[in-house]
């Protein structure tokens, strides 16, 4: 796992904010949908490629948990993570993001995902949790393995993940 940096050299915080707005709007409409589940939250995530599926799952997780009101005054945080394939990679990735959220207060705005034969490498951009601009809607404890599946269809990949809340 890489260390946090306080700036993103290629994109300014304002640009990141725009990326994030577009990302969340898209996410709400197309990239994932919430399926009714009594106690927990079940999410169906889509992606044209596996990388996009992972990326959309991460965005779904944060858009369920947090509403971002204003990003203009924020300092950008960039972080690299690498997760070795050990069990279900998507579940491990989502739980790693929850770990970073809880221990470092990382609120994810944008990410790029690279999949290799033995690992997932992701670059994460976001900011540190700030109650003045981030509203916590709900807190997710974990991504579970219950009814977890990744399927393929003509449009790409579909994953179902149940989050414990």
């Amino acid at each position: 796992m890489g260390s946090a940096q306080k700036s993103r050299p290629d994109v300014s915080p304002v640009q990141v904010a725009r990326v994030q707005v577009v990302l969340y709007n898209e996410v709400k409409m197309e990239r994932f949908s919430i399926i009714d589940h009594e106690a927990d939250i079940c999410v169906e995530i889509r992606g044209e490629s596996l990388e996009q599926l992972y990326s959309n799952a991460a965005s779904a997780l944060f858009s369920i948990m947090i509403e971002v009101e204003d990003t203009s005054a924020e300092e950008c945080v960039k972080k690299k993570v690498e997760i070795k394939r050990n069990g279900e990679l998507l579940i491990s990735f989502l739980n790693e993001l929850l770990f970073l959220w809880e221990t470092e207060g990382l609120v994810l705005y944008d990410l790029s995902v690279e999949l290799t034969d033995d690992a997932l490498k992701a670059t994460l951009w976001g900011s540190k949790f700030n109650p003045e601009i981030h509203t916590v809607k709900k807190v997710i404890k974990a991504a579970t393995y219950h009814n977890f599946e990744i399927k393929r269809d003509k449009k790409g990949y579909i994953a179902r993940v149940v989050f414990d809340v």
């Binding site: 106690a39 927990d40 393995y145």
Partner: peptide, 9 residues
């Protein structure tokens, strides 16, 4: 009892 993950709640 209600629907949990794995074991029922």
């Amino acid at each position: 009892i209600h629907w949990g993950y794995g074991f029922p709640i």
